[in-house]
């Protein structure tokens, strides 16, 4: 008699607990790319990439107050990068110092629902390694001098920003309905090829809730890709082909323009 009662009690508490959990279940976020592959063709001059996404379990009240924020990041493939510094030697500007960084995202673009300081605190961005100023940059040599490292890390970030590879767009993410949103990211004309990772971060009242990600491959289209591969895999034959093209062009030029 005692046993079933205890069991029932257990069951009731468990049910109550589940019901409680359901009330405060966290919002979820999902994103979908319209394409998982972007091709760079001969006339590529940059492109807009649109990412659609949806929120689950939205609290209507918070949603009405507009207190949900989404930050979408498109991160390029990791590369090893050498940062060099010029100093003046005998009146000339010469590369004298360098620091090698590994796994540097080749590009990093961020789109967000509004101004970054209105979404969450700097400490939160830092914790999530979010935004261009918090991109994780590690030197190849872990024993690098701290002040040199700080200087070169800032320089790397600044050069990437100057080339339009590290960018942020406040307002790049727009809610289409209470749950649907659209993020627009600009791919620069010099966008690096390789596998990019799109990540979306959901914030509620400035508190980070959830993150999701999707992969996107950026590659050169047909001919450009073949030329690139050929140059790297069959580099000797590629060189011969380049010479052949030059000889034929020179010869044809002579034929076409000869009006002596």
């Amino acid at each position: 008699m005692l046993l079933p009662r205890a069991l029932l009690l257990l069951l009731v508490t468990a049910l109550a607990g589940k019901a409680h959990a359901q009330e405060t279940v966290d919002e979820g976020i999902q994103i979908g790319l319209s394409t998982d592959r972007v091709s760079i063709t001969a006339d590529f001059a940059g492109a807009n990439l649109t990412i659609f996404g949806a929120l689950d379990n939205v609290d209507p009240l918070i949603s009405r107050q507009g207190r949900y924020d989404v930050v979408v990041v498109l991160e390029g493939p990791p590369r090893t990068v050498v940062v060099r510094k010029k100093t003046r030697v005998l009146g000339m500007w010469i590369n004298t110092q360098s620091v090698v960084f590994r796994d540097v995202p080749a590009s990093y673009s961020v789109a967000m629902t509004r101004q970054p300081q209105d979404i969450t605190t700097d400490a939160n961005y830092r914790r999530l390694a979010l935004r261009t100023e918090n991109v994780h940059l590690r030197p190849l040599d872990p024993e690098e001098n701290a002040s040199t490292l700080a200087e070169f890390t800032d320089a790397l970030r600044a050069r990437k920003e100057a080339r339009g590879l590290y960018v942020e767009y406040a307002g790049g993410v727009q809610f289409l309905s209470r749950t649907l949103f659209r993020a627009t990211l600009r791919l620069a004309p010099n966008v690096p090829v390789g596998t990019h990772r799109a990540r979306a971060f959901l914030f509620r009242n400035g508190v980070f809730v959830e993150e999701t990600s999707a992969a996107l491959t950026i590659r050169k289209a047909g001919l450009e890709q073949r030329i690139f591969e050929y140059a790297h895999e069959e580099s000797f034959l590629y060189g011969l082909a380049a010479v052949f093209v030059a000889i034929v062009t020179g010869w044809l030029g002579r034929m076409v323009f000869r009006k002596e």
């Binding site: 090893t80 060099r84 010029k86 009146g91 500007w93 790397l156 050069r159």
Partner: peptide, 17 residues
């Protein structure tokens, strides 16, 4: 270009170590 201070004294090179 050699003697005038460049716009940025820093430059990036990818890949080569």
């Amino acid at each position: 270009d050699l003697f005038v201070r460049p716009a940025s004294v820093y430059s990036l090179a990818t890949g080569a170590v």
